[in-house]
């Protein structure tokens, strides 16, 4: 079951970018994929997902198109832009450094 974990600032953006590396997804798809790849550790609520998606679209990291969902419904799909890929790379590196530092700090 999804636990009530507060996402760190910036973590949601990173997770969204990550889910979009393989294929384009609609909003709900992104939420489910995040839950899936984090094994239910993070539950993404629409109240934070949609503002984040629109913010990232404004920033030019993702772009959106209207398409058909898996069950034939109209849905808005998001894809990663080249700027988004660069952003993902940069944030992944940053995350690696932070988590390594945290791990070291907690072990000490």
């Amino acid at each position: 079951m999804a636990r009530d974990t507060t996402l760190l600032q910036g973590t949601l953006d990173l997770l969204i970018l990550k889910t979009l590396t393989l294929e384009k997804l609609h909003g709900l798809g992104i939420a489910r994929r995040v839950e899936q790849i984090t094994r239910g550790a993070f539950e993404v609520k629409p109240g934070s997902l949609f503002p984040a998606l629109h913010r990232m679209e404004e920033a030019g990291w993702v772009s959106s198109v209207w398409g058909q969902s898996e069950n034939g419904r109209k849905a808005r799909f998001y894809t990663l832009t080249p700027a988004g890929r660069r952003q993902l790379k940069a944030e992944t590196g940053e995350w690696g450094r932070v988590s390594l530092a945290m791990a070291l700090a907690l072990k000490a």
Binding site: H26, G27, F50, K74, A75, R76
Partner: peptide, 8 residues
Amino acid sequence: ELRSVRDL
């Protein structure tokens, strides 16, 4: 978009 999300 929000309507489609609700439907989904």
